[in-house]
Each structure stands twice: as C-alpha cells, then as structure tokens.
Nucleic acid binder design. Sequence first.
DNA 1: CAACTACCTGACCGCGGAGTCAACAAGTTA
DNA 2: TAACTTGTTGACTCCGCGGTCAGGTAGTTG
Lengths: 216, 216
Amino acid sequence: MNDIKKSVVKRRKSADIRKGNLQLILTVAEQRFAEFGYNGTTISSIADQANLPKSNILYYFKTKEVLYKEVLSQILKIWLVDMEEMTAEQHPKEALRHYILLKIRQSKEHSNASRIFASELLHGAPFLREKLQTDLKIQFISTCQVIREWIAKQWMNPISPEHLLFMIWSSTQAYADYGLQSSILMGKAELDDNDFETGAELITQVVLRGCGIKQL
Amino acid sequence: MNDIKKSVVKRRKSADIRKGNLQLILTVAEQRFAEFGYNGTTISSIADQANLPKSNILYYFKTKEVLYKEVLSQILKIWLVDMEEMTAEQHPKEALRHYILLKIRQSKEHSNASRIFASELLHGAPFLREKLQTDLKIQFISTCQVIREWIAKQWMNPISPEHLLFMIWSSTQAYADYGLQSSILMGKAELDDNDFETGAELITQVVLRGCGIKQL
DNA sequence: CAACTACCTGACCGCGGAGTCAACAAGTTA
DNA sequence: TAACTTGTTGACTCCGCGGTCAGGTAGTTG
C-alpha cells in the first residue's frame, strides 16, 4: 500500500509532506476534540485515526495543548467573518436573515468546529479568554453599534442589541451543539438538510417579527 | 478543629453522617464536573475541595462514573418539571412567558447543573442517551402537541413546534452555558440579576411577537 | 460491655497518558 | 556523492489517575 502511494505521489517534496500531514492531523484532531473534549482526547487516538504513529504527531505539534490551540484558532476566525458583513447601511431584514443563514450553515458544515468552540466557552474558555476579550469583543461592540443605528433609524424596535445577539448566536449554534439531541427527539438518526432549513427559516421569522422589522 | 466540630455536633448519628457526606460530595462534584467536564475532573480534586480523603469519596460512590451519573440524574428531573406546566388550556402568552422565565431562572440558579447537561449533549450524551429517548422524548412530544393545539385555536401562527422549542431551550440555556462569554463581552465579571431579567424579557418579547401572539 | 455494623483512611497497585530520545530514512543542496 | 536538513518511528521514562485493601475508629444494638 505504501509502495503504491509512493509510486503515485513519487518523491513528495518536503514542503508538501509537511503541508499534507499538518492538514491531516488538524482535521482528525478537530473530530476527536469535538467528540470527546480536550481531556477526553488522547494523542494516541488521534494518531490511530490518522494512521500515523504517535511520535509523528508530536513531531509536528510539540504538545497536545499546542495542537488544540491551533485547532481553536482557526475556529474563531470563521466566527468573526460572518459578523463583519452586517453594516448599518443594510436593512436589518436582509442583514439579519443573511447572518442567521450563515450561522446555521456553520452549524451544519462545521459542526465539529462549532462544538469545540461551545465546549470551550462552557468550561470558562481557558484557552480562548484573551482572544474573546480582544478580537471577539471588538467585533461584538461594533455589531451592537450597527443594531443601535438600525433602531435609531426606526427600522426595528428598541431592544438590547447585546441580548439580541446572544439569542441569535445560541439558537443557531444549537443546531451544531444539540443536533444529536434534536435528532433523537425528532426520531431520526441525524438532522437532514430540511431540518436546518426549517430551523433557519423559523429563527429568521421569529427574530424579524420579534424585533418589529417589517417583512417584505 | 476536628475537636471543635465534634464537641459541637456531638455524636452524629450514622444516618446523618451518611446524608451529610453524600450531599457534600454531590455538591462539590457538580461544581467540578461543570467547570472541568467528566474527564477533566479527578476524584482527588473533588476530595480536596470537600476536605475529605479520596478514599472516602470512593467509599460512598464506588466509581467516578457512578458519582457522575448520580449528579446527572438529578438534573434531567429539573429539566422536565418546567415543561410539564404548559397545557393546551393556558394561553401561550402566559404559558410561554412563564416557561421562559423558569428556564432563565434555572440558568441562573442551577448553572452548574445546566452546564453539565449541555456538555453531556455536546459530546453525544454518552451517559444520558436512554433517558433522552424515553423521558425527555415523551415530554417533548406532548409539549409539541400542546403547541399544535394553540395553533389550531389560532392563538399563534402556524410554526414548527419542534424548532420553536429548540429555539427557546437554546436561548435560555445560553445564559448558563455562555454566561461567562457574555459577561466578558459586556465588560463585567459576572452577569447580574438585571442581565438575566433583561434577557428573559427580550426572549419573551421576541418569541411572543415572533409567533404572532397578541400581547394586549 | 460485648459483638456488630457503618464509617474512615493511608498505603499501595496497575494502567494509560503525555512527552523524550536516539537512530535511522528520505529528501535537498552544492 | 557528500554534507545537511527534514521527516519517521519504536522504545522508553515519568507521572497522575482510578480503584483496592487492610486495619483502624466511631456509632449501634442486645
């Protein structure tokens, strides 16, 4: 099998090897951390799943903590990007609908990342605290400001931007965090595309109506 | 110190000793599990915090898993009780407002329990799956039915009861799960009573308006 | 008080975890 | 091809964890 690999890829360059292995390890690690948490995940288990010896993982990431932080750092970026798109010029009707859609999509397509992020927060964000206090907070404040301007323009009812954002975050995030629970309750093995769409649509409707934003 | 204790309590009965220690251990364990998760919590750390030798913990709970399950079992009960109160006879205006208020209160007053529950779900509910499939599912279905009747009576818009419940759960639950994150973003050490009230009020308003329930 | 049961605990054990290391293989460069 | 860098790996160490156990002490019962 190794021979086949070699004959196909034939003399991989060092840089490629590095890139490939880093990616592989990060991907597998993300899965494991999402499922079992930081403490519940062993380097050996990552190694097994990636079909690499344990030592090789430690060659690329000096410690488990370094590996975990690397996984985490990719996640916050994703989180922030979506929020940036909301601006005061847009009408909240479109802006919020769009944001909710993106967030739900995140929950579906990057559920592992979402769950790691949630788990991190749940346990007091031991590895993420600083980033929250800087990057996320800055974005948060600026988005709250956007909402305040919408309110000033009377495009929506005067409600707390902070709590509104918490509500949107948590209800969209839930489709990643509690997807399993939901599917159990709905009597299916997994949430399907339709469930995510229905969820997005409901959250959008409730939020828009709830904020007194005129539809259409 | 021990002498003082003895002279004050003077000859505690066996039954009392048992009861007291069990309670102490469960309380401390709940704290630790909430903060560090199942795998991140060591029996020694529980012992230290409870000022008991490790062996004593193992005397009352044969294994760590038994202790954890005991903590968990108390939590689901709380979760279910609140939901039972909603009936088709009530008007959703009061019923939902009341339920949301209770849920937020849960998040405030039993945040440890809430967080353990959330963490359990996040990681696929390894210890809770069965209970979800039975107890919670039964209650869930029946509450969905209640909502359907409200819709039939045209007391609210026709929306998916399942997804509505998910939305209410997640947005109230968030005040326990992400309380720390929220407080960081709002620039305070901890969420205060006022934050919980504002949150409850906002969620209530958004949900009621969002469902097309007339406020009067 | 004697016999019994419940409670308590320090010393110990075995396992599996993170991380090290030395020796080697594979790619790179001049 | 020789010297060098980068990647690879099994064997190893060290430690802290969950759990056991034996020998105690404190409460209970007749």
